[in-house]
Amino acid sequence: MRRFLGMEMLELIRSLPNQIEEALQYELPLLEMPKRIFICGMGGSAIAGDITKTLAKNSKIAIEVVRDYSLPSYATKGDLLIASSYSGDTEETISAFEDGKSKNLTLLAISSGGKLENLAQKYEVPHIKIPQGYPPRTALGYLLTPIVKVLKNLGIIDDKTFEDYIKLPKFLQSLQEEFEKENSLAIELASKYYRRIPVIYTSTALYPVALRWKAQINENSKAFCHTMEFPEMNHNEINGIKNPAGRCEDLWVTFLQDEEDHPRVKLRFEITKELIENSIQGYSIIESKGSNWVHRIFYLIYLGDYVSLYLAKFYKEDPIAIPRISELKRRLSQ
């Protein structure tokens, strides 16, 4: 692939398999089985919690992702709070961590340093330190893998799922050549999204994947993106894809589908395509690929990462820079 603006982001995307392999070697604390698990984070740090819920879909322990300054009122002693902040300085996560301390939750922190590491040392609770120097959204392997391993040690993620996760780096490496070809699916999708509004629809089980696509397109491509899950979409939004007609005609809808989707959800996808196709620019159907649930999830995640990179190229945007987020944080700190 020829070098272009964004080559640095390409290398960061390529680093995901190595991140997972490295993080699988981390020494982790032994924790007691919690009543519930709260994973607190924002942005690229929070998506690790969303994906964890998807991987642990058969868990009998409730897992809740908190994107806020405080925990729900029902959080209490016996629950586990995993605070995930790549920088360690995310104010919402710091606040939620302090809230967890005040409510006597079991605490675990994950960061590359910052205030969160200092608080973990102050409260004498476990802290998992991950490498510095990455944009948080490109450190998914470092942020996710420790949580997966902790939940495996607790028996919340089953042995088969964890075995599939261990094999994930090799699977991701096999996708790199596929997604970096001149005529790749990733480039095709990015071309469909260029100068249009991407809309990502998927099942509830795969909704964290759609959220990852949205965030990557927002941050890397500097483009607007909308997501919605099925079947909820059919109870409201399907009726709204009509007006204003000129705007709806700019929509390019992508359906992210999986072989394990509920039969009724599959049927809803088919009917929805027929009902909205005359109101939108067009649609794409993307089927997950892989021999197991873990690999199929990450096939879609990795595809979305590449799509966002190529869309940034089409818009001539630097996929690393996040000027508005940086300016927002600067003003908030004053």
Rank of each mutant, 00 (worst) to 15 (best):
H295A: 09
I37G: 01
T106F: 09
S111R: 05
D89M: 07
P136C: 08
T204N: 09
R296I: 04
I157L: 03
K313Q: 14
D89K: 11
M33I: 07
G41M: 03
S191M: 03
H226N: 12
H295D: 07
A83L: 08
D89R: 09
Q216L: 01
E219V: 00
E27T: 15
A139R: 02
D89C: 11
I238H: 13
R264Y: 11
S203G: 01
Y306D: 06
N239D: 12
F314H: 10
L206D: 01
N234I: 13
S191L: 01
L24C: 13
A223C: 08
R2K: 15
V253N: 07
A186E: 02
K214T: 05
E11C: 06
S112N: 12
R268Q: 14
K60A: 10
L303M: 12
R2M: 13
M1T: 12
V209T: 06
L309V: 06
G88W: 03
I187Y: 10
I320V: 15
Y193V: 08
Q132W: 07
P323S: 11
I37F: 00
I82Q: 02
A23C: 05
A48C: 06
S203D: 00
L81P: 06
Q257K: 15
R296M: 05
P17Q: 05
I322W: 01
K181C: 05
S174M: 02
Y142K: 02
G141L: 08
H235C: 14
I276K: 10
E117I: 04
I13V: 11
G114E: 10
E177P: 03
K77W: 08
S174W: 03
A96L: 04
F269S: 00
A48S: 15
S15W: 11
E117S: 09
P244G: 00
L172S: 07
Y310S: 11
T138G: 04
I157H: 00
K160W: 04
I61E: 00
I130Y: 02
P208C: 11
E27D: 15
P135H: 08
A109G: 14
D50Y: 14
T138S: 14
D250R: 14
K242A: 13
P17W: 03
F162V: 08
A210F: 01
I110T: 10
Y306G: 07
I37C: 00
I51A: 09
E317H: 06
G141D: 07
I280R: 08
I297A: 05
P319H: 01
M228D: 12
A321N: 10
E22V: 03
L16H: 09
R3P: 05
L55P: 03
D158N: 15
P29Q: 14
V209A: 00
S291W: 03
R268D: 10
P17K: 07
L275I: 15
V294H: 07
E22M: 07
